[in-house]
Every structure is written in structure tokens, then in C-alpha cells.
Design a protein around this nucleic acid. Sequence first.
DNA 1: GCCGTCTTGACAACGATTCTCATTCTCATT
DNA 2: AATGAGAATGAGAATCGTTGTCAAGACGGC
Lengths: 132, 132
Amino acid sequence: MTSTDKPRATPQRQAILDTLNDVDDFRSAQEVHELLAAEGSGVGLATVYRTLALYADHGLVDVLRREDGEAIYRRCSDTHHHHLVCRSCGATVEVEGPAVERWTSAIAAEHGFSELSHTLEIVGTCADCRKG
Amino acid sequence: MTSTDKPRATPQRQAILDTLNDVDDFRSAQEVHELLAAEGSGVGLATVYRTLALYADHGLVDVLRREDGEAIYRRCSDTHHHHLVCRSCGATVEVEGPAVERWTSAIAAEHGFSELSHTLEIVGTCADCRKG
DNA sequence: GCCGTCTTGACAACGATTCTCATTCTCATT
DNA sequence: AATGAGAATGAGAATCGTTGTCAAGACGGC
């Protein structure tokens, strides 16, 4: 699944990574494409999809799914973390959870599972939106 | 989001719930539709989608997303639980995690979030598949 | 500089999901 | 049991995110 050979460097790929770096937040492929177009880059939509999939495969970006199923990407830090997402405004807070890591490992071992990966998404309404 | 008025009872809705009961596993709307068609029911695809969305809204069914973004549904028990899924054979084990519940509540409160819901998926390779 | 290969862009194709709308069905009320 | 208002249904079109196709262009080793 996770390939190891190095992707070729191209200006388009660089632009896509730069965009993700700049926003420092989750964005869909479509949104990345719009951002690029807004700053005059003519990177094609298909290229955005291919590049994001490529980097997700290489572990350079995190992939999540919105509630409607659309894939969203974010340049990720190295440590494993989870996300607290506001269902109303989409604000995200990155949280770490050693407790969760330990618990999942224990449960999995108990059932004979190995080579674990897990996804934890916490969705709620943030303080601002509750007031609003 | 979660509405409280009672949905009207119809044979189609009953058939859809029955199907989910029978398989006791996650199925996509398309798959539910196929299963119904296979046993001679002429329930329309749109109705399957509408019904699953309706019951998901009412908390009668759990919704998850496959890796490709397709939504899958399962009739859920009343207690909140999570799933341990084998990436190879698809076997699922239902697990409860009071520790996780507590942790998510604490983290969310710390960041001012309310009206929580969360999804935790643990993916791994089960003992049988490891033996191969 | 040259060549084989990887990448790109434009657009078609695809598939899951939602929408539309005329018809049918539920159900509280007679 | 009949009725009527509103909800639900089915068929198919429409939407939209995503992937495939393919000719043209860029990259890097030579």
C-alpha cells in the first residue's frame, strides 16, 4: 500500500504541497484546486487529485472524510494525532491521545489483531457556533 | 440534527430494516438495494437512500465510510460502541470503550465543544489472515 | 542536447448520491 | 369504513466528486 520510491519533483506538485502548507488545515482536492487557480496557477484538477493521492500514499498528507464523503487532505506532522471538528463551522483542533493509543492496542491484541491503524474523529459544536 | 418525530411506517422501510437486521453487518445503500431486489422486492434505490438517511438521523442505524468514501450502514444496538475491522477479510468485532468515551468528552470540554459524536475505527489484520 | 519515462491537462467516463415530480399510500379524523 | 392532507414512493434525470484516457510536454540520466 505505502510505496517507497521517490516521486519525481515537478512545479505542480510543489505548488500543491505549498498550498497545503499555507492553509495549515484540511482542504478537499477541489478546494486546493480553487486556491491554486486563484493565485494564477493553471494546475489541472486531475493533477491535484493524483498528487494528493500520491502523497497520501507516501504518508506526507493525512486523509479524512467529511460527513458527506468528500475526501479532505492536510499536510501532517509526524506524530500521530486526532481531530476535533466543529460540525457547524468546520474548525479543527488537533489533539493527541496517548490514552486512546494504548486502549486500541490493548483491545486489538485481545482479539488477535495486528498491524493496527486507527481513525478517531470527534465531531461537535464549538463554543463560537453554540453562541451564534 | 436528530429529529424526534416518528417516521411513518411503510412496507419499504420495514423491508430495508429487515434486510439490515438479517445481514448483521455493514452494507452500502447499493448493496441493500441489491439484496432487496434479489428477494423480489421492488423497492427503489432512491427510497433505500432516503430511508437509510432517515434512520441514521434517528439513530436507528450507524453510518460509516468505506475507504473509497461510500457510505455503509448497519442496524445498531443501543449502546455506543466501536468496531475492530480486519483489513484483509473484513471481519468485524464490536467493542465498547468507556475509556474512549471519557477521554473524548474531556478533550472536547477542554476546547469548548459540545453536542459530541465521535467515530473510532480500528483497522488491523486478524489472527486468521495473518496465518494466511 | 537526446531519449525513454513519468507527468500533465483537457475532457470524457464513472459511480454514488440527490433531486424532481407525478402517483400512491398512511393515518388521524369523520 | 370512507376521506383528505400530507408524506412516501419509483423512475429517471441531474449533480458532483473522483478516476480514466491519451496526446503533448517536462524531467533527469546519458
